[in-house]
Design a protein around this nucleic acid. Structure first.
Lengths: 205, 205
DNA sequence: CGTTTCGTCGTACCACCGTACGATAAAAAC
DNA sequence: GTTTTTATCGTACGGTGGTACGACGAAACG
């Protein structure tokens, strides 16, 4: 049984178990024993790959972010090459909303990490947690492209516009996750906002 | 010393101590002892007024929401009667962003409660936690007024527009709280977004 | 074949947390 | 003036969580 093992693979499995636990229980309250049970291994194995709890939490965050980024990339890739920047912006922002049970789970865990990072310096220091991080540059480029195509007034700052749109998606995600809005309502609100900001068929003004 | 005491007042004091603790430490990790120490009383006094931890957390949330609502009301009241709906919307949304250390602290604790409510059924059931709740109706009315004043295209749904703007404020608050944006940047992004959605001097189109 | 390393497990320790059980003074009630 | 209530405290108990220590097979290495 105990032949050579890929440590990164094992860590990924355990991090996945942690994320699975965090879908339904407060992140801070999840411990080694719970992760071990969820992964079907014993306590010490978890501790073997994540010697301290801080590293365990960190590993879960890394995995979560990888999964979310991959899902976003896959979803965007399977859309036939749509070169309209406004349409692409819409796709990206829509994908950020929780739209199915899996993405809702991921969002919930991500929110737990974001909240924890606000008070836990160890988490706040390491990788970006709540920020738009990866998608932000691409979105800024797309907004700039839309602006050049005359879909957006020339005097607005694309950086600010991009981050404002991202913020709207984030906030609406929060409302949807907490049950205040249905995911359909959130999507509608986002769509309408996009229609107001980036009007599809208007010359520059 | 032990004469008759106003229980609500005591509860408020203790809840305030809890919120003070939660500014810098994970909410879930705060216990009776820490709150007692922060309030300068002993363990059992906290337990006397909040017999169970669930009630303690609940009390903290109630107090936090009361403080935030009062701050918002006060800030809005001290603005000289500005009857322009767009300007009033701007004031409200700006006030939702963290703009000083106190509001940043309050936002952080509020975010911790919102995240906890996503997995803790006891918190999710009781009062609204993450939702725009109180301000939402007023904001919808203001958006409707702006629409009637020709500042917003007639075919948009004011409810969706209001919730989208609220979502933008919420998301930008998250970015500001997590250090991804400065509060100035968040305010600029929000302002620009408002300028795009509710154009100040345009006829109905 | 002996030895060392590696992955995995069982168990134990210490500290802390929520909760409960008195105890004690001061005020109120009678 | 006695008794009962009220606000407050000190301390204790059961449980749980992070961490540590040791053990034990299986492979790799010589």
């Amino acid at each position: 049984m105990p032949k050579r093992v890929d440590h990164d693979q094992r860590r990924r499995e355990l991090a996945e178990a942690l994320v699975r636990c965090a879908r339904t229980r407060p992140l801070h309250a999840i411990g080694y024993r719970e992760v071990a049970a969820e992964a079907g291994v014993s306590l010490n194995l978890v501790q073997y790959y994540f010697p301290t709890k801080e590293k365990l939490l960190h590993g879960g965050l890394v995995h979560l972010r990888a999964v979310m980024a991959r899902r976003l990339r896959d979803r965007l890739a399977e859309t036939t090459g749509d070169d309209d920047p406004v349409q692409r912006i819409r796709l990206i922002l829509r994908e950020l909303l929780p739209h199915d049970p899996v993405s809702a789970d991921l969002y919930r865990v991500h929110a737990a990490y974001a909240a924890l990072a606000l008070t836990d310096p160890a988490l706040a220091a390491e990788p970006h947690t709540a920020g738009p991080d990866q998608i932000y540059p691409e979105l800024t480029d797309l907004v700039t492209a839309a602006q050049k195509a005359g879909r957006l007034s020339a005097h607005v700052d694309p950086h600010l516009a991009a981050v404002a749109l991202l913020g709207a998606a984030t906030g609406l995600s929060a409302y949807a996750a907490s049950g205040y809005l249905t995911s359909e309502q959130a999507a509608q609100a986002l769509d309408q906002q996009l229609d107001l900001v980036l009007e599809p068929h208007r010359g520059s003004r």
